[in-house]
Amino acid sequence: MTDVLIQARNLSRAYHNGREQICVLQGLSLELRAGESVAVIGPSGSGKSTLLNLLNGLLPPDSGELQLFGRTHSLLTDSDWAELRRTRIATLFQDGNLIPTLTVSRNIAFRAGLAGLQEHEGRALLEQLDIADTAHRYPDQLSGGQRQRAALACAFAMRPALILADEPTGSLDYATAQRVAPLFFDAIRERALGALIVTHNPELAQRCDRILELREGALRPWDSAVSS
């Protein structure tokens, strides 16, 4: 694949705590192409969630260059970002982020509808994820693992170009994660999606095409020998 979905150079982002400025990201660079999955690992507080929020437009960088789908972040309006999140960028949060007043099937239909799709493959996705029996349940009637799989179905039903995932199998038990992970990565490759996956799970990270470590505000290729 040659299509570059994310191109970031020297991104920086800081927070202010009173008079103190805390640099979370500093000099961060990243390239992600269609059909490629990249894992981002790092300790809690290293800036992984901040990175995801920069890439989906919920936070602006303080400095640096960021392009998504060939479009420069500084030229994107709030409406542009909202459209990208509706149609091209699927963000998977740890809590599933389902609408509590809609059943699982209606959550999927709603998500696909936001992307402009009148038809979707929600039923097939629920069957593949082994939660077809949850279609008419509400999110509060599901286990954490079921909610996470329902969120995966919502994400794939919108047919995005880019998936940003925060621990996409974090609420799954080991056996279920072993079944779901191959489906997740098969879908990424078959649909030529780009995926940036934040995770503490080494097995999940090693399924990705590349593993990057977020350390001292920047991304570096993961060196397993150093980490161990």
Rank of each mutant, 00 (worst) to 15 (best):
R88I: 03
Q26M: 00
R210Q: 14
L92F: 06
G145T: 12
G27F: 01
W222Y: 01
E216L: 00
L196V: 08
F184D: 01
E216F: 05
G217D: 09
L152M: 13
L142P: 07
A115R: 04
R88C: 09
A165Q: 10
T72A: 13
L55G: 02
L59Q: 11
P168H: 11
L219C: 08
A155W: 06
S224T: 01
A187Y: 06
S105G: 02
A157D: 00
D3L: 02
E121G: 12
V38N: 09
L152A: 03
R88F: 09
L142C: 08
G35V: 14
K48A: 06
L5G: 01
R88N: 08
R207M: 11
D95Y: 15
A161P: 08
A34E: 07
S171F: 04
P221H: 04
S228L: 13
P221R: 15
F185A: 11
T134K: 11
L55Q: 07
L114N: 14
Q146P: 12
H16I: 00
G45T: 05
T134A: 15
S224I: 00
R71N: 13
S228C: 14
L164D: 05
S12A: 15
N56V: 03
V4G: 04
A151E: 01
Q7D: 14
W222G: 00
A8W: 00
L172F: 03
P182A: 06
L117R: 09
A82C: 09
F184S: 04
R19L: 10
L196A: 07
L126Y: 05
A225W: 10
E121Y: 01
L75V: 10
D223I: 05
G47R: 14
N201L: 13
R106A: 13
E167V: 14
D62H: 15
A192W: 01
M158Q: 07
V24A: 13
R9G: 01
R9E: 12
R210H: 11
Q21E: 11
L172P: 02
A109Q: 14
A187V: 03
L152E: 08
A218D: 07
G57P: 06
T199F: 15
L11F: 03
L11R: 10
C208P: 02
A8Y: 10
G18V: 07
L162V: 07
L25H: 11
A192H: 15
E216N: 14
V226D: 15
E190W: 00
G45I: 05
L51V: 14
A175W: 14
H136L: 12
R33G: 04
F185D: 08
P60W: 03
F93R: 09
L214I: 03
A8G: 11
L196D: 07
A150H: 11
E167C: 10
M1Y: 04
L92R: 10
A132I: 01
L102D: 04
R71F: 14
D78M: 09
R123H: 03
D62Q: 14
V104G: 11
P61A: 13
L52T: 02
G70S: 06
R137Y: 05
S44E: 04
Q94W: 12
S37P: 02
L196K: 08
E213G: 05
Q148N: 07
R106C: 00
A150E: 12
A124V: 01
